[in-house]
Simulated scan of single mutants.
Amino acid sequence: MHLIIIFLALGLAYGLRYVDFLTSSKWLVRWQISLLLFISPPLLLIATAIAVICMGPQGKMLGFSTGWVSYILAWIFCGWTAILGLALAYQGWQSVQKVNNYPQINIAGKSVFLLDNPILFSAQIGFWDSKLVVSKGILERLNSEQLDAVLNHEQGHYYYRDTFWFFWLGWLGKIVPFLPKTQVLWHELLTLREIRADQWAKKQVDGLLLAETLLLMVSDRFTEQNNFYAAYSCTTPPNRLTERIDAILAETDFSMEQKSYWFWSWILLNFLPLITMFFHQ
């Protein structure tokens, strides 16, 4: 019976990923649907595995016997998710320790860590209380207005704690890389994250200046992505750059902060497999 529950959860996880998520022109709805479709399948599988482990390999459920196969599979999956999470956390911790060795300077009243590199680079690195890193290239090649645009964008990432939340999202994505649209949804969330930070910066600086600075930094180079980075240009997929610029120059409201009870209701539905424990005897 437990194997049936596992296969049902897998089938539902696959089915959720085939939902067409690019159907709304409203940014809040687009953000919430993309987030739901990205996190629901792994949360559903984790809840199912925990339920199977808690019920154990012995006993019956709705008249059907249980066995060791499903129990072992559940432990393997939970072990894999735990090891993967610890590995990613260790990588993030190493990055933070590396940043702590960089010289610390003050720019426009903000404390930043200086990367000795001529490229144009800025990023929030860390977890909840992330650290802002900028390269020497930023200080040498950008004027004061462009630098202010970059700093305000990074402040948007810090305000929304993007490094912390996207660390967990990156972990969930790596748990189920075999599911369809994992990379597509991940790039969608990265793009929407950058648009949200752009809109934060746009409240402080001119939108045209922000777009010009973005183009300048992106044209300089692309760097390797990390799930705990929140950077001005690094994490934007090249084919989504135009979308970011259009959003910066538009006059539309791109708010993604409104409360939505249906969103959290759907999140709670992912833990329904835990209810199956009450039917185990």
Rank of each mutant, 00 (worst) to 15 (best):
H2Q: 15
H2M: 09
L3G: 10
I5K: 09
I5L: 14
L8H: 09
A9Y: 09
L10N: 11
L10M: 14
A13E: 03
Y14L: 15
Y14K: 05
G15Q: 01
G15R: 07
L16S: 13
L16V: 11
R17H: 08
D20W: 11
L22Y: 01
K26H: 12
L28H: 15
R30S: 12
R30Y: 02
Q32I: 03
I33P: 13
L36A: 02
L43S: 07
L43M: 11
L44T: 00
L44A: 02
L45R: 00
I46F: 11
V52W: 00
P57D: 09
Q58V: 13
K60Q: 11
K60W: 05
G63C: 11
F64Q: 05
F64K: 07
G67M: 05
W68F: 14
F77I: 02
A82F: 12
G85M: 11
A87K: 11
L88E: 05
Y90M: 08
V96I: 04
V96A: 09
N100V: 00
N101S: 14
Y102P: 05
Y102S: 10
Q104G: 05
I105L: 07
I105G: 06
I105A: 03
A108N: 08
V112I: 04
V112K: 03
F113L: 03
N117H: 03
I119G: 11
F121E: 04
W128C: 03
S130R: 15
L132F: 00
L132C: 06
V133L: 04
V134Y: 00
V134L: 05
R141Q: 07
N143H: 07
S144G: 06
Q146C: 06
L147D: 03
V150P: 01
L151K: 06
Q155D: 11
Y158T: 13
Y158K: 13
Y159V: 04
Y160T: 03
R161F: 11
F164P: 12
F166L: 02
F167A: 05
W168K: 12
G173C: 12
I175W: 00
F178C: 08
T182V: 11
T182G: 06
Q183E: 10
L185H: 07
W186M: 06
W186C: 00
E188T: 12
L189D: 13
T191Y: 02
L192Q: 06
Q199D: 13
A201R: 01
Q204D: 02
D206H: 05
L210N: 10
E212C: 10
E212A: 14
T213G: 10
T213E: 07
L214C: 09
D220T: 05
T223W: 01
N226T: 09
Y232G: 09
Y232A: 03
S233A: 13
N239F: 12
N239T: 15
R240H: 13
L241I: 13
R244C: 07
A247C: 06
L249Q: 07
A250L: 08
E251P: 08
T252C: 01
S255L: 01
M256P: 10
M256R: 15
W262S: 14
F263Q: 01
W264N: 02
W264F: 00
L268G: 14
N270H: 09
F271I: 02
P273C: 01
T276Y: 00
T276P: 04
T276L: 05
F278W: 04
F279D: 12
F279M: 14
F279S: 15
Q281V: 10
